[in-house]
C-alpha cells in the first residue's frame, strides 16, 4: 500500500472531499443550505469562515463561488422545494438540512413532491437530489436535534436512504448518492464527523443497495445501523472472549436494502440481532426483523431480536441520554442470551 492509500482523515473531511470532488467533476452539482458558508454577503475573511454547522462544507464557497454554494435564510421548506425544482430542471443539488429533526419542516416537499414526481408524472421527472443531515443522540442536544428519522423516510416509495457508519463509507456512499438520479436522504451521525478512518484520496463510489460485511463470524448475525456498527464491533470483541463469533453486517443503505447479504449470513449463523438507534415502533429494525423472519425462518435457531431506543423522545440529562442509546452491554447480553438459547 502506498502512503496515500493509508491516509487517515475525519468523517467531516471525508464528506467534504466527496462534495468537492463531485462539484469538480460536474458543474451542475450545487450546494444549498443554512450556514453552509457563513458570513454570507460580507466577503473577505468572514464569508465562508464557518463552512456549515459542523465545518463540513468549509472551503467550498471559496472554490465554487456563490452561484453554486448558496447560503440560505432559515426556510427549510423552500430550500428543499427549490432543490426539488432545480433537480427537475436538470441540476444536481445537494441540500444541507443541518439536522434531521428539521426535515419535518420540509416534509411536504420531500414526501409529496420529490418522492412522487417520478412515478406520478409517468417517468418524465428525474430528481437527482441529495438531502444531507446530521442525526443521532450523544451530544446532549436533546429532543429537537437528535432524532435519527431514517425509518420515516425508508417508509416512503421514491426515496433512497443512506446511513454511513464510517468516514470511508461516508465518502463513497455520498459520491454515489450525488451521482444517483433519485432523491437521496443521507444521514450523517454526529459521531461520524470526528471519527478517524483510512479514506482513499480521489473519487470513488460504493453502490447504493449493497450491504458491507464488517466482520465475519459463525454464531450470530448482528445487523447494525450507522453508529451502532461501532458498538457492535466493541460488543463482538467482548463476545469473542466467551467464544461467541459474531458476524456484523452494515446495511449501508436502508432504501434500497440488501436482504440477500443478511439472509446469507443467517444461513451461516442461525441467529439474528438488529441494533438500531431509533424508537422501536414502525422502525427499520421492525422492518428488517419482519422481512428476515419471513425470508430465513427455516434457518433461525432462536427468535429474532432487536435492540432499539425506548419509545420516547431523546432526553437531555446524561444518565437519561445514555439510557436512551443502545449500549455495548445490551448487545453483549442479548447476543449471549440468543447464543445460549
Amino acid at each position: 500500500m502506498s502512503q496515500q492509500e493509508q491516509r487517515i482523515i475525519s468523517g467531516a473531511s471525508a464528506i467534504n472531499e466527496a462534495i468537492r470532488e463531485c462539484m469538480e467533476q460536474d458543474p451542475t452539482t450545487i450546494l444549498i443550505g443554512e450556514d453552509i458558508a457563513g458570513g454570507a454577503g460580507l466577503g473577505g475573511q468572514h464569508e465562508g469562515a464557518m463552512g456549515g454547522s459542523f465545518g463540513v462544507t468549509k472551503g467550498l464557497l471559496e472554490q465554487f463561488g456563490p452561484l453554486r454554494v448558496r447560503d440560505t435564510p432559515i426556510s427549510e421548506a423552500a430550500i428543499a422545494g427549490i432543490g426539488v425544482g432545480a433537480s427537475a430542471a436538470g441540476l444536481r443539488p445537494i441540500i444541507d438540512m443541518m439536522w434531521s429533526s428539521f426535515t419535518p419542516l420540509a416534509f411536504d416537499q420531500i414526501f409529496n413532491q420529490a418522492a412522487k414526481m417520478r412515478y406520478m408524472f409517468g417517468g418524465q421527472a428525474k430528481i437527482p437530489l441529495v438531502l444531507r443531515m446530521a442525526m443521532g443522540a450523544g451530544l446532549g442536544a436533546a429532543g429537537q436535534h437528535s432524532d435519527t428519522l431514517y425509518s420515516v423516510f425508508t417508509h416512503i416509495p421514491g426515496l433512497k436512504v443512506v446511513v454511513p457508519s464510517s468516514p470511508n463509507d461516508a465518502k463513497g456512499l455520498l459520491a454515489a448518492s450525488i451521482k444517483d438520479n433519485n432523491p437521496v436522504l443521507f444521514f450523517e451521525h454526529m459521531g461520524l464527523y470526528g471519527m478517524k478512518d483510512e479514506v482513499p484520496e480521489g473519487s470513488y463510489t460504493y453502490p447504493l443497495g449493497e450491504a458491507r460485511l464488517v466482520q465475519e463470524g459463525s454464531d450470530i448475525t448482528i445487523v447494525a445501523i450507522s453508529m451502532m456498527v461501532t458498538k457492535a464491533l466493541e460488543a463482538a470483541t467482548v463476545l469473542a472472549e466467551d467464544g461467541i463469533k459474531a458476524e456484523i453486517i452494515d446495511p449501508r443503505t436502508l432504501s434500497p436494502i440488501d436482504y440477500d447479504s443478511m439472509v446469507a449470513s443467517i444461513k451461516k449463523t442461525g441467529r439474528l440481532l438488529i441494533v438500531d438507534e431509533s424508537p422501536p415502533r414502525c422502525s427499520i429494525a421492525a422492518d428488517i426483523a419482519a422481512n428476515l423472519s419471513e425470508m430465513a425462518f427455516g434457518y433461525l435457531q432462536a427468535p429474532t431480536s432487536r435492540i432499539t431506543c425506548p419509545h420516547s423522545p431523546v432526553p437531555l440529562s446524561p444518565p437519561l441520554e445514555s439510557a436512551y442509546i443502545p449500549s455495548v452491554e445490551q448487545i453483549v447480553s442479548t447476543a449471549r442470551g440468543l447464543c445460549c438459547a
Binding site: I30, A77, I82, V84, G85, A88, P93
Partner: peptide, 30 residues
Amino acid sequence: ADFDRGMLGANAIVGGGIALAAGGALAAQT
C-alpha cells in the same frame, strides 16, 4: 405534467408547486 414543455406539474397540494418553480428559476440563473 409535461416536462418537454417546461410544465413541471400540476400539484394537488395547495402551494406545493411554488418552490418547484423557484427551483426552475434557480437552475436558469445558475
